[in-house]
Design a protein around this nucleic acid. Structure first.
Length: 556
RNA sequence: AGACCCAUGGUGUAACGGUAGCACAUCGGUUUUUGGUGCCGCUAGUCAAGGUUCGAAUCCUUGUGGGUCUGCCA
């Protein structure tokens, strides 16, 4: 797939493990989302890592829903997550697991701890537990319930399970060390009472395990060899290892890497949720969102996202990736696969004065210069066309290669024309450009010997259809919306991130195009037809613009 | 400031005691019937101070800077 010989630190660990013969049956990883939100590009990094590793080094990757909190989880999220992973191009085959499938086993693990005097039921309320926890510099104090007998603990825990106690009245805690410098070792809560239905187990349970008592053991149950997670779980690792040791279960190895951050956007589920709830965007799948579903609607391809995830690398350093890298990856893929079409976003009429008013001809146009197999289509040509308003200047600078009085320009796949005049209305607004064409300059059979510096895209005025285009800009005005903790990130929202362009003229072949199929609108950018049109007209979302060395230069 | 983690061009990421490389971005050139694509090139980096060593981005010490941790969230 790539020419790289350098491997990231996780691959190095795996290579070493394999060299030592530790995993003769192959390695096992897992992708463990909580079904309480939509997947975003940060999750994609983890998905590509976990599935990529087992493709590369022979192994399997499980999909496991970490559904230990019935309050926030639902099957709606389960389904969207599965759809997104499949769309990205990964297959977990029959290995679709749920932490809730392990509730019985986890309960038995808790029993084992209690029996060995390593867990106890605490009747303290949450405020008391918090107070007794101490701080990072002050050791905690032991709960008065810490020394309960095994029998009493067993009895009370059973009562918790049976629903005999109110929510919040008791918890089960591991008995570790209230003076540990690691806060996670100060007798962490491992079970809490929640008398509510779970999206999979229904009303079976009145108690649910905490993440810290479920995640690591779920890895062990599945015999995950390398359990990859983000940096913030580094401090939890000693607890997981303690549980593995005391429970005498499969020793999955946790390795932490830095999560993905992208500039000009936010990545946490909570923050994304706020954007949705405040109506800043139209939903989780708004094309401006860094969610997988948003990016899909924007026209990003799975291959582009995978490429991006490979290019960002895996390391332990906090990072903020440049949006330009994502855009590069998108163009890289789309340039190869997107068929070319012509659309005029800001049209102005162009009259070919010496072209017969009643004549029409069909001109062949290649669909993709990067892919011979994409074939060609025909475009109607006649006396009246539309071209881009920006492609004309009355008094242009010398480096302007487009239309101006007296200048020649090539109409892509058609003829070279000579600009003979133009018309403005009373407001000075350009309303019409006039030109003459050179009949012997037809593309593919040009014998005119005439040169033209620039090439323009166009559509036939008589045949063009109307469309709407959604242009997108970055969601935030600053590279790191979360950087200043004094300022609410919502204040950095770019209110011009969506521009609805009406009056767009598209070539006829675009009228019946299918949703989400990528196109390059020549000289403009990559677009996909939206699944839901804006009114009656076909609507196209801009995925990303073409690189523009003229526009940039011109601005400076 | 208790513990743990991290520190290489603007942004990412390699170099495993022996020539600091790659990608994106930037800038310049070239090709081109897309001012796209392709191709070529420039600019620019080891947080600091000590130590070990023939030799340190790499090992040690200290400092500095950044991150994580005190939910019955995950």
């Amino acid at each position: 797939m790539s020419e790289k010989e350098s491997v990231n630190f996780i691959e190095q660990i795996i290579q070493n493990d394999l060299a030592e013969g530790k995993f003769p049956d192959g390695i096992k990883t897992r992708f463990p989302p909580e079904p309480n939100g939509y997947l975003h590009i940060g999750h994609a990094k983890s998905i590509v890592l976990n599935f990529g590793l087992t493709q590369m080094y022979k192994g399997t990757t499980n999909l496991r829903f970490d559904d230990t909190n019935p309050e926030t989880e639902s099957t709606e999220y389960v389904n969207s997550i599965k759809r997104d992973i499949r769309w990205l191009g990964y297959d977990w085959e029959d290995r679709e697991y749920y932490t809730s499938d392990y509730f019985d086993q986890l309960y038995d693990f808790a029993l084992k701890l209690i029996k060995e005097g390593l867990a106890y039921v605490d009747d303290s309320d949450s405020e008391t537990i918090l107070e007794q926890k101490g701080t990072v510099t002050v050791p905690g104090t032991e709960s008065t319930f810490r020394s309960r007998s095994v029998e009493e603990n067993l009895d009370l825990f059973e009562g918790m399970k049976k629903g005999e106690f109110e929510e919040g009245s008791r918890v089960l805690r591991a008995k570790i060390d209230m003076a540990s410098p690691n806060m996670h070792m100060r007798d962490p809560v491992i079970y809490r009472i929640k008398r509510m239905a779970h999206h999979r187990t229904g009303n079976k349970w009145n108690i649910y395990p905490m993440y810290d008592f479920a995640h690591g053991q779920s890895d062990s149950i599945e015999e995950i060899t390398h359990s990859l997670c983000t940096l913030e779980f580094e401090n939890h690792r000693p607890l997981y290892n303690w549980l593995i040791e005391k429970l005498e279960i499969y020793p999955s190895r946790q390795i932490e890497f830095a999560r993905l951050n992208l500039n000009y956007t936010v990545m946490s589920k909570r923050k994304l949720m706020q954007l949705v709830e405040k109506g800043v965007v139209s939903g989780w799948d708004d094309p401006r969102m860094p969610t997988i579903s948003g990016m899909r609607n924007r026209g990003y391809t799975p291959a582009a996202i995978r490429l991006f995830c490979e290019k960002v690398g895996i390391a332990k350093r906090e990072n903020v990736i440049d949006m330009s890298l994502l855009e590069f990856c998108v163009r890289e893929d789309l340039n190869r696969v997107a068929e070319r079409r012509m659309a005029v976003l800001n049209p102005v009429k162009l009259i070919i004065e010496n072209y017969d008013e009643h004549k029409e001809e069909m001109l062949p146009a290649i669909n993709n210069p990067e892919d011979e197999a994409a074939g060609e289509r025909e475009m109607p040509f006649c006396r009246e066309l539309y071209v881009e308003r920006d492609d004309f200047m009355e008094d242009p600078p010398k480096k302007f290669f487009r239309l101006a009085p007296g200048r020649n320009v090539r109409l892509k796949h058609a003829f070279i024309i000579h600009c003979t005049g133009f018309e403005r209305d009373e407001n000075g607004e350009l309303v019409e450009i006039r030109a003459e064409y050179y009949p012997d300059s037809r593309s593919g059979s040009d014998t005119s010997g005439i040169k033209a510096k620039g090439t323009l895209h166009w559509v036939s005025a008589r045949h063009a259809d109307n469309a709407v285009v959604h242009m997108y800009d970055r969601l935030f005005k600053v590279p790191e919306p979360l950087a200043d903790k004094e300022v609410d990130f919502l204040e950095h929202v770019n209110e011009d991130s969506l521009e609805v362009v009406k009056g767009v003229k598209i070539e006829p072949s675009l009228t019946e195009s299918e949703a989400l199929k990528p196109f390059q609108f020549l000289r403009k950018g990559y677009f996909v037809r939206a699944e839901n049109s804006d009114g009656d007209l076909p609507t196209f979302n801009m995925t990303v613009g073409l690189r523009d060395s003229w526009g940039g230069k011109n601005k400076k």
